[in-house]
């Protein structure tokens, strides 16, 4: 997209009176940069600089007190042999299970709340409440809910999904899944809103015409709804793939990587190296590797969601 071609954008200064238009450009330049200055200063300090300095730090040894010392690829060599880091990466990749589950669930929920039922606005709002609450609050609440005598254990044992109740976050075999469920629970409403917008963009006549032509519900869903949603699915699954690989906040609040490292994720490794061990260079190197991994999975995800269709 070119800026000048967008609707309503300022047209190129005309050359009708050369002197005046030159003055106009000079004035616009001055005023324009003046308007952008405060924003740009903060953007450069807190967004651009971290990208540049963070990349540089990855090749240094740095503990904040003494200046960074350039060490070449040492950090990456050490990372390659660091089993704790790769265990973290493995847990982050396990977290990708959330992606298809959350996408299917939110498409289903979006189709439900897209029905013209009485009181449907209440349900939409209700499903969105977890999205607007802080992970600090949500993590604490689920921490209590997961206690041995708590409601989650009650439900799981009564449904026969579990024999003995146990503290779900303190058990290495269940902790990661317990945290995943919170991510799912908090995220469904977010994707629901996006899918809802997507559903409302699909012309109703299309579905009605298909029904008149004798298409079954399943066929309508498969050939019209899903096809119409494909651009939204692409965006949503990309977003959730990247945030799954980079999962951190819920781990930080709920388990701090425990028990026995069962929820120790890649980004948690980076955090711990920086703020617990004060190895900022090593932490930045881990961050860079995580960026590459999440990019790779973003690309894979992109291929998968547009795959199989020539027109996509």
């Amino acid at each position: 997209m070119s800026l000048g071609q967008e609707a309503g954008a300022a047209p190129a200064p005309t050359a009708r009176r050369g002197g005046q238009s030159w003055r106009r450009v000079a004035r616009d330049t001055l005023v324009g940069y003046g308007f952008m200055l405060p924003f740009l200063v903060l953007l450069v300090v807190y967004h651009t600089w971290p990208v540049l300095f963070g990349t540089y730090l990855a090749f240094t040894k740095y503990n904040v007190i003494s200046p960074p010392e350039f060490v070449g690829l040492d950090n990456f060599r050490e990372l390659a042999k660091d089993s704790q880091f790769w265990e973290g990466v493995r847990n982050s990749l396990r977290y990708l299970i959330v992606v298809p589950v959350i996408q299917l669930a939110s498409i289903g929920v979006a189709m439900l709340v897209n029905r013209p039922l009485r009181g449907i606005a209440f349900f939409r709002t209700a499903y969105y409440v977890p999205v607007v609450t802080s992970f600090a609050v949500v993590g604490l609440i689920w921490g209590w809910m997961y206690q041995q005598t708590g409601p989650v254990n009650w439900v799981l044992t009564h449904l026969g999904l579990m024999k003995e109740p146990h503290s779900l976050l303190n058990n290495p075999s269940s902790a990661l899944y317990a945290v995943m469920f919170v991510t799912l629970w908090k995220g469904i409403g977010y994707y629901m809103v996006l899918y809802l917008a997507g559903l409302q963009g699909i012309p109703r006549e299309l579905e009605e015409a298909a029904v008149v032509d004798g298409a079954s519900r399943w066929q309508v869903f498969w050939h019209i709804t899903l096809v119409g949603l494909r651009p939204v699915i692409l965006v949503c699954s990309l977003l959730s793939t990247i945030s799954a690989v980079k999962v951190f906040e819920e781990i930080f609040v709920m388990t701090q990587g425990g028990p026995q490292g069962s929820t120790y994720t890649a980004l948690f490794f980076s955090y711990a190296k920086a703020f617990q061990d004060f190895r900022f260079g090593y932490a930045a190197a881990a961050g860079l590797v995580i960026a590459v991994i999440s990019l790779a999975f973003g690309v894979i995800n992109f291929r998968l969601t547009r795959g199989g269709k020539a027109d996509a």
């Binding site: 971290p50 300095f53 963070g54 990349t55 980076s270 920086a274 703020f275 961050g287 960026a291 990019l295």
Partner: peptide, 12 residues
């Protein structure tokens, strides 16, 4: 990539 964002902003 802004994975080191927290770290660098802390330093800044």
């Amino acid at each position: 990539p802004n994975e080191a964002g927290l770290i660098v902003n802390f330093v800044t």
